[in-house]
Computed example of a mutant assay.
Amino acid sequence: MSQEPSVASWGAPSLGRVAAPLREQVTAVLRQAILDFDLKPGQRLVERELIEQLGVSRTTVREALRQLNVEGLVTVIPQKGAVVATPSPEDAADLYEVRAMLEAMTVRRFIARATDEHFGQLRAAFEDAVVAFADTENIRALLRAKDDIYAVLMAGAGSNPIQEILEGLQARVRALRATSLSQPGRPAQSIKELRRLVEAIEARDPERAAQVCTEHINKAAATGLSALTEES
């Protein structure tokens, strides 16, 4: 029987002397660890271990966990305590559908509004992703490479409403992305899909780019939902 990983096995960074209140620092550290997949879906967040790792009080840890619970990143289970949230297959399906619509709009806006500099940044971000995706075991690097591509797309699209909505979904979307990219064979397929997307954008073909974008998300959804269904 495999032993559940403990919080103690996660290398928490030191909390520095910064302007933000300690509670906000702890919340930010835990949030980033979840988004980077250092703390994985379903993993228990034992208060005692967090207190020892972060060198803060029980009250501070509990306040941080409450905030992450509000954000949907942590679930509090009676008699068990806090765990990193795992989206249900139903919630995940809805998130993938919303994401497909919003990101298809984003690539259309990018083609219509982006500058030549944005197009150059997109190509550079994709080439960096090719390098990152060569190491399929480094989930953090894969996630950051995809984050960089989407950051360029959002900047070039210049749509505050779309950006605000996607930022509100970012944490849960990133958790799903990590789940999908953790499945065997998915990183290699994903980078091929991203290549087709970038090429369609560079061809200034909004309909083709939107179609490729939607297909990319649908394939990620199929992989991610399959993994979530097996776990549930």
Rank of each mutant, 00 (worst) to 15 (best):
R17K: 15
R17P: 11
L22Q: 14
L30V: 05
L30P: 14
Q32V: 14
Q32K: 15
L35N: 05
D38A: 11
D38T: 12
P41R: 02
P41L: 02
L45G: 01
V46A: 12
V46F: 09
R48V: 06
E52F: 12
Q53G: 10
L54A: 04
R58L: 15
R58N: 15
T60M: 11
T60V: 15
V61Y: 03
R62P: 13
R62Y: 14
R62G: 08
L65G: 10
L65T: 06
L68A: 10
L68N: 05
N69A: 07
V70Y: 04
V76C: 12
V76Y: 07
I77Y: 04
Q79I: 08
K80T: 11
V83R: 06
V84E: 01
A85F: 00
P87E: 02
P89W: 01
E90Y: 12
D91H: 09
A92I: 03
A93R: 06
D94V: 10
L95P: 05
Y96Q: 12
V98P: 13
V98S: 15
R99H: 14
R99N: 14
R99K: 15
M101A: 15
M101C: 14
E103T: 04
E103A: 07
A104Q: 01
M105V: 02
T106G: 10
V107A: 00
R109S: 12
F110V: 01
F110R: 00
I111P: 00
